[in-house]
Amino acid sequence: MTRPVIISHEMDATWRYASGVAMERFANNLLERRIEAMQCGECKRRYLPPRPFCGNCRVPLTDWAPVASEGVLEAWTVVYLPIVDNRTGITRDGPYAMGLIRLDGADTTLNHYVAETDPACLKVGQRVKAVWREELRGAIDDILHFEVLE
């Protein structure tokens, strides 16, 4: 077989997105360490991420409902495989823990990081609490991670 010819290209790409009305209010709330969900007038389900329509009832939403920064750990894992951080493109080493958290007042669960990385200390049904960053920027990663409550 002939020797392979390798031609390399590198590319930097940048995107810019409109948040939409629901995420705009959500982002501004985060700057004040406040979380709000949007609630369906028909099925009463409270949605995080907030969106101005209910997919199940197929109706527009206008109501906002307060949500606590504490809740229940509904699912968890500890990841050991290094994985690309979607925000930076930089590989993140394990172990790190992830959870699905149902914040008090919300019906959907929020996927986020969990501080505890010992599988023996993590259980479905545990209470957890948000730990906020010092410097807020109006994004969901203004919550650094969740910590397990005693």
Binding site: Y17, S19, M23, A27, P49, E74, A75, W76, T77, V79, L81, I83, N86, R87, M98, G99, L100, L110, N111, H112, Y113, V124, A139, I140, D141
Partner: peptide, 20 residues
């Protein structure tokens, strides 16, 4: 606005659901 900050790819997402 949401998943780029807090999603963990196919592997992490499966692992979360498996715990349930």
């Amino acid at each position: 606005y949401w998943d780029r900050a807090v999603a963990s790819g196919a592997l992490g997402n499966f692992a979360l659901s498996i715990s349930q």
